[in-house]
């Protein structure tokens, strides 16, 4: 399958700090690829190199088989970028934001108007076309950012934390649109630290921490490999229970007030634990990407 992005040994440094420390990955045409990681993992630095904003400090980075530093213009005309911060133009209306942006891509006026019209419909902002940017809600701003990134009919859509700070309704609105774009065959690369978002949207993903790749793969495979199918969580575990888990050498994590037991045969173990050790505060649930993420990146705060 054709690879639209090829990164090999990619490095980005700020002084002596290696924000991206030799990562390699490939994005195939038509897939949704996720870059996950805690704050400061190097997600945004990676994305900025991808759309030609930041020069790389090492390695190779090809988009559409071309070197991003040699041919930034040709590449940038074929990708759409939805930055993390709101960079909409507050001096312009909703519709003007799309039409003025179209000019940067040399899209003729009539075509730009038509495209803006389609996109306003796509994001459900037709009634607000004349609205000024500061009057829009957070969810509308995000959707407009998304529409603006699509103005040039890009082959790859790059999104940096597309739903950070949105309420659940707005997040679903964004997800629905991204799923629609995906079904139309658009290649999507996104960063996020929402695991549910990654699990829902991404065909494949990698988890980044301190500038390095920890794991890469399809969400379900990663869950199976690193956590198993199910997880048992025990609130305020007794010492007796802790000893049992240790003696049985069950993969687990002890958070003090909470014990998390991974893998095992799920129901059988759960049955045993609930009858022998804890009558309450014990839950069996499906393993999620969040378990993988926390297991691999740890639980300390990243600030």
């Amino acid at each position: 399958m054709e690879e639209v992005i090829v990164a090999e040994n990619l490095v980005k440094t700020f002084g002596s700090f290696r924000a991206v420390d030799g990562i390699s990955f490939r994005v195939r045409r038509g897939e949704c690829f996720g870059i996950l990681g805690p704050n400061g993992a190097g997600k945004t630095s990676t994305i900025r190199m991808l759309y030609g904003f930041s020069p790389k400090d090492g390695g190779r980075l090809d988009v559409f088989g071309r070197d991003i530093e040699r041919e930034p213009r040709q590449i940038k005309s074929r990708i759409g970028v939805c930055q993390q911060e709101n960079t909409l133009d507050p001096d312009l209306t909703v519709q003007q934001n799309l039409e003025v942006f179209a000019r940067y891509f040399d899209i003729p006026r009539a075509q730009a108007r038509q495209r803006a019209e389609q996109l306003l419909h796509f994001i459900g902002l037709e009634p607000r076309r004349q609205a000024k940017i500061p009057t829009l809600s957070g969810g509308m701003l995000r959707r407009l950012m998304l529409a603006r990134a699509l103005i040039n009919n890009p082959e790859i859509l790059i999104l940096d934390e597309p739903t950070t700070g949105l309420d659940p309704q707005s997040r679903h609105q964004v997800w629905l649109r991204l799923e629609e774009l995906k079904s139309l065959g658009m290649s999507i690369l996104l960063t996020t630290h929402y695991m549910d978002e990654a699990a829902r949207l991404c065909d494949r993903l990698l988890i980044l921490d301190q500038g390095r790749i920890l794991v890469e793969g399809a969400p379900l495979d990663l869950i199976r490999q690193h956590v198993g199918r199910e997880v048992i969580e025990i609130a305020t575990p007794e010492e007796e229970l802790r000893r049992f888990v240790r003696d049985q050498q069950l993969p687990h994590e002890d958070l003090g007030h909470r014990l998390i037991v991974y893998g095992g045969d799920g129901e059988g173990l759960y049955h045993r634990l609930t009858t022998d050790y804890c009558r309450q505060g014990c839950t069996l649930r499906m393993a999620t990407l969040e378990d993988v993420f926390l297991r691999l990146t740890g639980r300390e705060l990243r600030e």
């Binding site: 030609g52 930034p72 940038k76 005309s77 930055q83 911060e85 507050p90 940067y104 891509f105």
Partner: peptide
């Protein structure tokens, strides 16, 4: 404040 240049830098303009 408006990050207008940042937005434009993601387009073919230099």
């Amino acid at each position: 404040y408006q990050k207008t240049f940042d937005a434009i830098l993601a387009t073919p303009l230099s």
